[in-house]
């Protein structure tokens, strides 16, 4: 398969994290409860916080203190937006996230960049392939993976009014606008992005592709086009919110199909595929084939698209999985890597 670059690289700027960077100061000027807690990410320019300089704080390279400070602010009626890389937010600082933020259910907004394999050549220390499993497990957290820069901005804007803590996972580089890719093709195409409500990008069909995050959703859309050439109608559901999960949409997508292919930029365990499998097992059993990073660390240098290709998070892999479901071919059940692919 040579389809690793499923649409990425053809995008217009900005990236999701730039959209967030550009939006946050305006939100802060309109609402004096909002803070921007930076951890020396280099994403923000202090000058952008004109009018609210006291509420932009670079707390340095210290993620535990970052999360604890955010919790203290939130317990005082503030709404801090905390930014660090996804892996640092959810593994290095996890105990503070769990005990200081989730346990008291405080309205901290963790906006994490470099989700999934976005850090590419920087390697496994900077990849975040466990963050969604961890965050959707923590009681009370809303967990969102916007599909593009526009959705990232919407997620950030909508998060302000939510009651508890929120985790928003962003990538690194720019990706295409999903609305433009999907216009007019699904029951809810053109409807506004709404946290907690899955987005139909292709209507229910013979097989369902349920994806989250820019690259997986783009790969699913491309796979749906490829499947159409095989005479297979594939639903595409952008399951951008993992918690609260839009279980009705998941069940509706699976109903009457040969099965569901889940696609995510995450280790196969515990993330979107896990959430879909749990939901279907309990509400409407269906076969599920999970596309995601096998249980392995990247072993050689690759950009995000290279890694997605090598580890099979591609439209080709989605097509193969969908055709296997339709033909009733047995398979799945392991997260271990198929080393022949790598």
């Amino acid at each position: 398969m040579t389809d690793a670059r499923d649409g990425a690289g053809t995008a217009a700027p900005p990236s999701a994290r730039e959209a967030y960077r550009d939006l946050l100061p305006a939100l802060m000027r309109a609402d004096d409860r909002l803070y921007c807690l930076d951890s020396d990410t280099g994403l923000f320019d202090r000058a952008a916080f004109a009018g609210v300089p006291d509420r932009y704080l670079n707390l340095g390279i210290a993620e535990h203190n970052l999360m604890g400070t955010a919790a203290g602010l939130a317990a005082s009626g503030k709404i801090p937006f905390v930014t660090t890389m996804a892996t640092f937010a959810t593994t290095r600082a996890l105990e503070a996230v769990k005990i200081d933020i989730a346990y008291p259910a405080l309205p901290v907004r963790i906006v994490a960049t470099h989700g999934g394999l976005a850090a590419g050549h920087l390697g496994p220390t900077h990849h975040a392939l466990e963050d969604l499993a961890i965050m959707r497990m923590l009681p009370g957290f809303t967990v969102v993976v916007p599909g593009d820069a526009r959705q990232a901005g919407e997620a950030v804007r909508q998060s302000v009014g939510l009651p508890g803590p929120v985790y928003i996972r962003l990538g690194r580089s720019a990706t295409p606008d999903l609305d433009a890719r999907a216009a007019g093709t699904g029951p809810s195409a053109g409807e506004p992005f709404e946290i907690g409500r899955a987005q139909w990008l292709r209507p229910p069909g013979d097989v369902a592709l349920i994806a989250g995050g820019p690259h997986p959703v783009l790969a699913a859309l491309r796979a749906a086009d490829l499947l159409a050439a095989h005479g297979v109608r594939a639903a595409v559901l952008n399951l951008h919110t993992l918690r609260p999960l839009d279980a009705d949409a998941v069940v509706a997508a699976a109903a009457g199909t040969a099965g569901v292919v889940t696609v995510e930029e995450h280790w196969r365990s515990g993330g979107l595929g896990g959430a879909v499998a749990e939901t279907l097992a309990e509400r409407a059993p269906a076969r599920v084939a999970r596309i995601g990073m096998p249980a392995a660390f990247a072993e050689r240098v690759g950009g995000q698209d290279d890694l997605l290709g090598w580890y099979g998070i591609t439209s080709g892999a989605i097509v193969a999985a969908a055709l296997n479901l339709i033909s009733g071919t047995p398979g799945g059940g392991t997260d271990d890597p198929d080393l022949s692919r790598v």
Binding site: L57, H64, L66, G68, G72, L73, S76, G77, A96
Partner: peptide, 13 residues
């Protein structure tokens, strides 16, 4: 090891 970071937040607020 959690209390001082929390108190930083309270004191900043």
């Amino acid at each position: 090891g959690h209390g001082l970071a929390l108190t930083n937040g309270f004191a900043l607020a």
